[in-house]
């Protein structure tokens, strides 16, 4: 283990590799985490099916790649649109009945959805690990650092999509309605905003963002019907670490988590790559608790 960290000193280029890989994968994490923060902030629903939405997006890319012979890069818009529709459907079927209920109702409902989605994917596509191939190549830098072009594309897509969502929230009618509803649903309702539609739209937007993230994942990593949970946990860690309603925080902590995973995996072995994520969640919660306790004391 110590010798692994020694390697970082002996071979400085590995640092560059880990940093780049981490930042580029972190961009994708940011997407799913942002979607989670959106639903959490606006609807107060903690969507445990977040990772399953990601995997569904991945399977849309895989389906287009394997069965239709289309380059999975085209799945980016397709998955966005299809997942938006699925999000709307799931909102009507499940989510609208649990908004405003207590925490456990929505947790149970979304957890149930997560199980149903992964089992359905398993029935349709089988339990095997799958990938989609973008056909893009790999560039070699500094003699021993490789950058896959698809990772660069991912970062650009993730950044572009994030920018689009931010502009949409700022400038469009629906964006304003979403922000108004997030601030005070009752007041928004009195002002004539159809909050039910706002919720439906928010949830669908989240599903669409996750779908796009999933397409990128399928071209960089591998997908499997039961891999959603890892992506869900990541999203939760990122949002909790950033603090709710803190968009720049979500991006920074997603990129940071990407890099940390890479360094953690390098230092402690790939097995601990995800354990580190959960460890970090505990750490963040403990630190927050201490900070809040201090705050409470001051108030007293």
């Amino acid at each position: 283990m110590l010798s692994n960290f020694q390697l970082l000193v002996d071979f400085p280029a590995t640092n560059v590799q880990l940093l780049l890989d981490g930042l580029m994968i972190g961009g994708i994490f940011a997407l799913a985490a942002y979607g989670l923060a959106l639903v959490w902030g606006v609807m107060n629903v903690k969507n445990l099916a977040q990772g399953e939405f990601v995997i569904m997006g991945g399977y849309i890319a895989f389906f287009m790649y394997r069965d239709l012979g289309i380059n999975p890069l085209w799945a980016l818009p397709v998955a966005g649109i299809v997942m938006f529709g699925i999000g709307w459907l799931l909102y009507g079927l499940v989510i609208r009945w649990v908004i405003g209920r207590d925490l456990f109702t929505s947790l149970l409902a979304t957890f149930g959805m997560a199980i149903v989605i992964s089992q359905l994917l398993n029935l349709v596509f089988g339990p095997d690990v799958q990938t989609a191939n973008s056909g893009l190549g790999t560039r070699l830098f500094l003699g021993s650092v490789t950058i896959q072009e698809i990772r660069v594309v991912s970062l650009v897509v993730a950044g572009g999509l994030a920018l689009m969502v931010i502009l949409f929230m700022k400038n469009s009618r629906m964006g304003q309605a979403i922000r108004a509803t997030a601030q005070d649903p009752r007041a928004a309702k009195i002002m004539g905003i159809d909050t039910d539609r706002v919720y439906a739209f928010t949830y669908s937007l989240n599903a669409a963002i996750c779908g796009v993230a999933g397409v990128l994942i399928s071209m960089i990593w591998v997908i499997q019907p039961f891999y959603g949970i890892a992506h869900s946990i990541r999203s939760f860690v990122i949002v909790v670490a950033a603090g709710l309603g803190n968009l720049p925080g979500v991006i920074v902590s997603a990129l940071g988590l990407g890099v940390l995973e890479q360094y953690g995996g390098f230092g402690f072995g790939t097995e601990f790559q995800q354990a580190i994520v959960v460890g970090l969640l505990v750490l963040v919660l403990v630190i927050r608790q201490i900070m809040q306790a201090r705050h409470r004391q001051v108030v007293q």
Partner: peptide, 22 residues
């Protein structure tokens, strides 16, 4: 190198980065 891989493995680039170094 003696790395362990997780049950829900989808990325082993860190192990391979190590492989490239040693």
């Amino acid at each position: 190198i003696d790395d362990k891989l997780p049950r829900d493995l989808s990325d082993m680039s860190t192990t391979l980065t190590k492989v490239r170094a040693v």
